[in-house]
């Protein structure tokens, strides 16, 4: 453990700023994925283990569109929308059958879908690493220097995009009629049905929105790194961590937790390079032991 390295980094503006920006980038990308997971759990009560596989699909879809059209924006948007539609089918065909089933049944259903999708993308796109969709041209400029800290403009763009999505999500959930219906579905679906609302439509819509967010996260991740089968298997665990730390079902909690995890990863890489993941799990254990409902979750 290199605690002095961490100390050195914190007192050096260049290192502090670049690690903070890096942490924000990681955290905000994570938020896109984890917010979908926590939204689905909060409303439908299902832990969607296959959420990481949806993220992977988003990366593949956007890669496919990129290779046809070479248009970055179109690739990312269609990746997200494509996964949204896939999520709708997934919900209608499979997930809605296990809403009231045991936790074990839900986990196994989702895990079988992970196994199937991981192999399907290999059959369709091959098992090689695909080189990602790259950074759009306008961002292929020299990095910005802030106090000698090197920050790629594209990372700033990713942070901003994610923050805008977070803001839109907040608007949708708190200010729109759909958001009100979603929150009502989470609290008392029976009453809502008695009032003539088709909660199946709401549930499908929420699952679609959650999948859209996973797809968007995957599409943006494809611009930063490579695309490969099984790439969702580590993001799903990180999303679980965020969901648990923030409070299950709480989107604002997920936002806070994503930043915490992003920073833990970024500064953890300086302090304990071999134990960066361990720090996240340690935080998760501590939260579950001390405050199981999470930082911003409601006590049951």
């Amino acid at each position: 453990m290199e605690i002095f390295a961490l100390f050195d980094c914190i007192i050096t503006p260049a290192c502090l700023i670049s690690q903070t920006a890096g942490g924000l980038k990681i955290g905000m990308l994570l938020f896109l994925v984890a917010s979908g997971l926590t939204l689905v759990f909060g409303v439908l009560g299902v832990i969607n283990f296959a959420h990481g596989a949806l993220y992977m699909l988003g990366a593949y879809f956007s890669w496919q569109v990129m290779s046809i059209t070479s248009h970055f924006g179109l690739a990312v948007i269609s990746g997200a929308i494509g996964v949204g539609i896939f999520g709708l089918l997934f919900e209608r065909l499979l997930i809605n059958k296990v809403y009231n089933a045991d936790l074990l049944v839900q986990i196994l259903l989702c895990y079988s879908v992970i196994l199937i999708l991981d192999d399907l993308v290999m059959i369709i796109w091959g098992d090689e690493f695909l080189s990602g969709i790259g950074v759009p041209e306008i961002f292929q400029v020299p990095p910005i220097f802030i106090f000698d800290a090197i920050i790629p403009p594209f990372h700033i763009a990713i942070i901003l995009i994610s923050m805008i999505v977070a803001f839109l999500l907040w608007i949708i959930m708190t200010k729109t009629k759909f958001g009100k219906l979603v929150r009502a579905t989470a609290i008392n679906p029976k009453m809502l049905e008695a009032l003539g609302v088709n909660t199946n439509v709401i549930k499908a819509g929420v699952f679609m929105l959650g999948s859209f967010l996973a797809g968007l996260g995957g599409a943006l991740a494809a611009s930063l790194g490579s695309v490969v089968s099984g790439m969702g298997n580590s993001i799903i665990i990180e999303s679980f961590i965020v969901t648990v730390i923030g409070g299950m079902g709480s989107i604002s909690g997920a936002f806070l937790a994503s930043i915490i995890i992003g920073m833990a990863r970024s500064f953890g890489a300086v302090a304990m390079p071999l134990f960066t993941d361990g720090i996240m799990f340690l935080i998760m254990v501590l939260v579950l032991v001390i405050k199981p409902e999470g930082l911003m979750g409601k006590k049951k």
Partner: peptide, 21 residues
């Protein structure tokens, strides 16, 4: 319930990280 499952998962992954470290 799910909190139990998550805590067992977190401990396991902590041990996994320790093995790697």
């Amino acid at each position: 319930d799910i909190y139990f499952s998550f805590l067992t998962l977190a401990f396991q992954m902590l041990i996994y990280s320790i093995i790697l470290a």
